[in-house]
Design a binder for these strands. Structure first.
Length: 584
RNA sequence: GUCCCCGUAGCUCAGCUGGAUAGAGCAGCGGUUUUCUAAACCGCCGGUCGCGUGUUCGAGUCACGCCGGGGACGCCA
């Protein structure tokens, strides 16, 4: 009998059927959820509310429900009624082993997970830096969280399109092109294009401030660019290409690859339609020469305008964001879109979504799901936004480099005999992974304090702790000359016995819940927490139960546990965007 | 001024749609290695969940008020 991927869901369905069989009134919700291990694996709390609403004795209702449970359930679980009417379910050891045997390979887990979001098509809008500028620490969270959410949704069965909505259009290009044409240093450009663009922009900006004639020339450059003059477009195109190449170096380290890069310039010719439609529908109105949208039903947005066209006639990000929503629905056939953006922009997104909903409703377009996946600020240890000592933004490139350096120093003390090249790889994986994981492990909505020591000190809920568990698991298989997931070997496994074996197996079986929770709320920290607890159970098991024992059936079942732990740890870490290691 | 978010152990944080005795890590104290990586494991210590009132079988979680911190608020994104 194949074990269902998500036992909680399957149990819920069984209870629902039992409720009908027991003659309970509808609606009845079983409310199955993971339980405190002291009480069991799962608990159903539904009878409490049900009994209350009908002034029944909850324990009697629970009794009635338990009496109607199908034989498969009572065979697989210890069932107990506790307290005011909780029903506790503890999977028997044979059931645990059965689940582990049914989910032996990555494809089997993936197939199970993919059931929850089939048919959904999401556009993920994340990272989205400005071209011609360095990515700095302020770009970290969007990239890291966005990628993890993308992977979680895809794993859950959704079609995911990663769209890098870069800032590649704006008034700064006039000054930049002016300076580029006159002062570009080709050698510097080849070495580090963004560094050079930043230098040129500052140069152009200063020159324009100092000299009105330069300002006029810069303005003329901008007009020519916007008018589509080929020579200007060519420079602009070069700037963007070089910028994207530089971004990709960071993305490669973070495991990010976009499907689309449709920046603001792409929507240049698509904003006019937005103005026309919204004006015609009466949603937008002229105010102080700008085109704005008010929301009379909203306490604040009845007065605080959503400016969709500036008084000088130019577009702003409200214009392009509206055009983007339309394009994503009409052309890309998205059923939903997510914006992984700083929470300080929540007003903008609230106004944007309100406006888009009214617009779509008024034009009979199907309404997409739109969600602002917000996140807090990265703070320094002084609890203020993280900066360098001189008050500059920290470049993402430098941050990741420092992470690797710190990890390298650590590998050299912990495992000095490894080959130099391998130490470098370990440093890169551990360093980058530590930065990613520190960002993901905390609830994204809150600010978080960036602290190197806590991040790479490798204690507690950190990337290194998890990667270390993976490395130890790999080491076991290396030492024993065994292959993880070897079915023939696993067939010899005897039943789970020790407390640590059982605790580990129980935690493994909870993987589906962790995925569901993390993907459902687009909060990767739920997966982090699960993986951390799993690694903890593994470490306790590793310490208490030796795998390399003589008894072949004991060894086989422990190897099976190791193989599943390895599989789920790696699957989880990869979903978060981290790489894993053989040794560290 | 209006609105939003936050306040949980000395520190950094979990706590899923209200569920059982509020949990981790760090720091502190004490243990564990002739055994698969000790970057580990085990134990102890530590909380009036900012304060108050209310809602109910049940509140860290919901409502209202207050105190404290952060953020947003017309042409940057």
């Amino acid at each position: 009998m194949p074990a269902p991927f998500n036992l909680a869901i399957s149990l819920d369905a069984s209870l629902q059927a039992a409720a009908t069989a027991a003659g309970l009134e509808t609606p009845f919700a079983a409310e199955v959820r993971g339980a405190d291990p002291r009480h069991g694996d799962f608990q159903a709390n539904g009878v409490l509310g049900y009994a209350k609403a009908r002034k029944l004795n909850p324990r009697a209702v629970a009794q009635q429900l338990v009496g109607a449970l199908p034989a498969e359930v009572t065979a697989a679980y210890e069932v107990a009624i506790a307290g005011p009417g909780f029903i506790n379910f503890t999977l028997k050891p044979a059931g645990l082993l059965g689940w582990l045997q049914a989910h032996a390979r990555a494809e089997q887990l993936a197939a199970g997970a993919a059931q929850s979001r089939t048919g959904e098509a999401w556009i993920l809008d994340y990272s989205s830096p400005n071209t011609a500028k360095q990515m700095h620490v302020g770009h970290l969270r969007s990239a890291v969280i966005g990628e993890a959410v993308a992977r979680l949704l895809a794993y859950s069965g959704a079609k995911v399109t990663r769209d890098n909505h870069i800032g590649d259009w704006g008034t700064q290009f006039g000054k930049l092109i002016w300076a580029y044409k006159r002062h570009v240093d080709q050698a510097a450009l080849a070495r580090d294009p963004i560094e050079e663009f930043e230098r040129l922009y500052k140069l152009g900006n200063n020159a324009a401030d100092a000299d009105v004639a330069v300002m006029d020339e810069a303005r003329a450059e901008l007009v020519q660019l916007q008018a589509g003059k080929p020579a200007s477009l060519e420079v602009w195109r070069q700037i963007n290409e070089a910028s994207l190449r530089a971004f990709q170096q960071v993305y490669d380290q973070l495991g990010i690859r976009f499907d689309l890069t449709l920046g603001e310039s792409f929507y240049n010719d698509k904003v006019a339609r937005v103005y026309e439609e919204l004006a015609k529908l009466g949603l937008a109105q002229e105010s102080q020469r700008a085109l704005v949208v008010f929301h009379p039903e909203h306490p604040r947005f009845k007065e605080q305008p959503f400016i969709i066209r500036k008084s000088d006639g130019a577009a702003n990000y409200a214009s392009t964001d509206l055009a983007t929503i339309l394009y994503r629905c009409e052309v890309l056939k998205a059923t939903g879109m997510l914006y992984v953006v700083d929470k300080r922009q929540s007003d903008h997104f609230e106004q944007l979504f309100l406006t888009a909903r009214k617009w779509f409703a008024a034009t009979n377009r199907p309404e997409p799901r739109m969600e602002h996946v917000d996140f807090g600020t990265v703070l320094g240890e002084n609890n203020k936004p993280l900066k360098t000592r001189s008050g500059e933004n920290i470049k993402l490139k430098d941050l990741l480099l420092e992470a690797s350096d710190r990890a390298y120093a650590l590998v050299c003390t912990k495992n000095p005999d490894l080959p130099e090249a391998e130490k470098r790889v370990i440093a890169e994986v551990v360093g980058t992974g530590s930065v990613q994981y520190a960002d993901l492990a905390q609830n994204r909505s809150s600010d978080y304090v960036f602290a190197w020591d806590r991040m790479i000190s490798l204690e507690g809920n950190t990337a290194a702790y998890l990667l270390y568990a993976v490395a130890r698991l790999r080491s076991i298989f290396r030492k024993l000359g065994a292959v993880p997931g070897d079915t023939a070997g696993e067939a010899a496994a005897s039943g789970l016995e020790t407390a640590t074996e059982l605790a580990l197996a129980r935690k493994l079986m909870k993987f589906p819940e962790a995925i569901l929770l993390a993907a459902g709320q687009m909060r990767p920290h739920f997966l982090c927490l699960y993986l951390y607890e799993l690694a903890g159970e593994f470490s306790a098991f590793y310490n208490a139960d030796k795998v390399a024992v003589d008894d072949p059936s004991v060894r086989a079942r422990r190897l099976l546990l190791c193989a599943r732990t390895l599989l789920i740890l790696e699957t989880g870490l990869h979903l978060l965007g981290l790489r894993t290691l053989e040794r560290m």
